[in-house]
Design a protein around this nucleic acid. Structure first.
Lengths: 214, 214, 214, 214
DNA sequence: CATGAATGAGAGTTCATTCAT
DNA sequence: AATGAATGAACTCTCATTCAT
């Protein structure tokens, strides 16, 4: 809960609202989040939310835009460091994983939105998600052209990476709880940290992509 | 929207409510679904929902219990047909895929619940999800013992399968829409049907599991 | 909570309902008592309540009729044992006190009804209350005629007796609680039992009635 | 039914709500009073009630706090005018009586609350009621020390005074009605005004307190 | 005599949003 | 830029009551 320090500072107020909204939406979903609670969290008047964002949907769009832009920038930035598709793919996965882990609202929000087919904000999701996917797709295509990757279907592989990592992040509390109650027999990876998971995923994906087709 | 045909038939009423609730919850999420709307859809009095299920949470639990049981039964049934881990794994993925496709509320509900860490109904989710995971985990373990699968971490692989399939199902409308608007360059698999996707997934997962470790 | 043992016994069902209704109405008041809860307490179908009593008001009237008749009979019965107004008055107070104590729903219901001026059931209250008051009034009048009591206003004295005893009974839990929390200084008679209270009341009322006027 | 005159005046709105709530609660009791009706009476939106008082219970507490404070202030104010227990006692009774008569919601609310043992708002009732009782108790104790009063049990005498006066006030309509229908024989004091009643009560209580013990 | 299913009205409460200052 | 007051619709849930069997 980020309390504001400067009053009469439009940009600060806006940011406070967005920051808290990210938390709230990721925890309770679009319908479950209340503007009252958000105002209280942000220590400012409820009417200000509407002053800055017009309505709840507008705020939600701003939130999604913010976080999608954040992850996109982080990933493109990192991507520049590499000069071959294999390293780029590895970097993509590692970067997404560590970002998702340190900003756990991202998986929560993404899964919620995608499980609705972007019911609330199709356009924003579209534009931003496509850019990220285009980058991922491009890496794979170039790898395929160079003969490094075989039999590539980027869309499926993209969701394989995102699906795995997002679920591993959002279910962390659930898996920890399961580990405590459980009769040991099933290992829920309650202890694994996200980097190990990412490494396993990278390793496995390399295996599946570098193989000749039957 | 299933309209009732039999009045004063408790079982029919109950089923009508649950069926429509599945639709509603999967489309709008827990908080977004309204009991008023559900009653109208089901062509019966709002009070009946509470008569049968006590409260919204109770209904939601019944819904989750229902669909988790359904998928579990479908999968265990199919699993009996095979006698080796490789076929079992293939069967698991194919069955889940075709079930998810013909009952698309399942991916929607699962992703929503998991993106909350089971905020609404941890216990039910726990019990039912674990059973499904235990089956999957068991297949892999047996495969590993027989030397068919190498370097297995069931939890991660489980979410890889579920994540991929669930996202491919729930994003279908989004991907179709993207294909229409788009400048061709990125292929969103808008045309692929779920069986092809499952086959691709199976193929890739076999490759990653049958390989020696580095 | 009186559970029925005989099914298909009209009189038994009726009595069960009335007995439990007495408890319920006295605890929660007319508006606060729910027919659902009453049915559950009585272990029979809600519709039966309406079968026997037509509606909630009808049940409430039956309840008030029952308890007012009960106290009236108890008091008239006892009254026959005495042959002079002084003993009769003493008997009246003692009997009412011990009845109120062993049937604590009576004070609760009486105070609730009287604090509404009999909003729910004026007629029943009227008829039954008047009979009791007539008896009390008669005792005092006869005493006055014989010169035993001076300066008598029966209505006021009646409410003095009923008010004191009823409040002492209904506030018992409150007074006990106060005694526990308190800084000792005020004595809430938390320990007094109702007979001592009645004796004190009798003693004081005798003093006030036997005195010459100024 | 007090209609508001000033809009966007918080204090006015609050007061309007409380005033009408006093009427409503005293007439229908806690459970019987409806927030819908209260809003309509007060000519403002139902949500405002919750804006100012959070919930029904909060409003009820505000109501009880208000009226208990009112009577307490009135009585303590008056009490300062006297310098001996006898006059103080007389003043207490007279003041309470005339206040109860001009604010007839007080007896109604008090009897309702006390007949529940403060089920709804024990704490507030406690604190405020105790203060009033402490004052009454103190008068008697001081009188006893000076030998003016004999054989004093404040709690019982307190309920004797309050019981009598409250019942006389709340049953007024009932008693008037009885007088009209009746066959004359019983006198229900339908004509007496509250001051005469208070005087009679004072007279009688003096007689009972100034007497030697047996 | 008894049941469970059904109903419509209304309960208290919260919502996103707007208005006046 | 910011506030608190106000609103109307919607929310979940409970109520007394009735109907069909």
């Amino acid at each position: 809960m980020t309390k504001r320090t400067h009053k009469r500072d439009a940009e600060a107020s806006r940011r406070t609202i967005v920051r808290n909204a990210i938390t709230l939406f990721s925890q309770k979903g679009y319908a479950g989040a209340s503007m009252d609670e958000l105002a209280k969290m942000s220590d400012l008047n409820k009417a200000m939310i509407f002053y800055y964002f017009k309505n709840k949907k507008g705020l939600y769009e701003a939130v999604m835009h913010e976080i999608l832009q954040e992850i996109y920038q982080t990933i493109t930035e990192e991507n520049k460091l590499h000069d071959n598709p294999l390293d780029e793919l590895e970097g993509f996965i590692q970067t997404y994983a560590s970002f998702a882990c340190s900003h756990p609202y991202l998986p929560a929000l993404l899964l919620k939105e995608l499980s609705d087919s972007g019911a609330v904000i199709p356009e924003v999701l579209f534009a931003s998600m496509r850019k990220l996917f285009a980058l991922f797709s491009d890496i794979l295509r170039r790898g395929e052209e160079r003969g490094i990757f075989k039999d590539v279907i980027p869309m499926i592989l993209y969701f394989m990476v995102l699906g795995t990592l997002n679920l591993m992040v959002t279910t962390k509390p659930l898996r920890v709880k399961a580990a405590q109650l459980d009769d040991i027999e099933v290992d829920t990876c309650a202890e694994c940290d996200i980097d190990e998971i990412a490494d396993y995923l990278i390793h496995k994906i390399k295996l599946m992509l570098q193989q000749e087709e039957r």
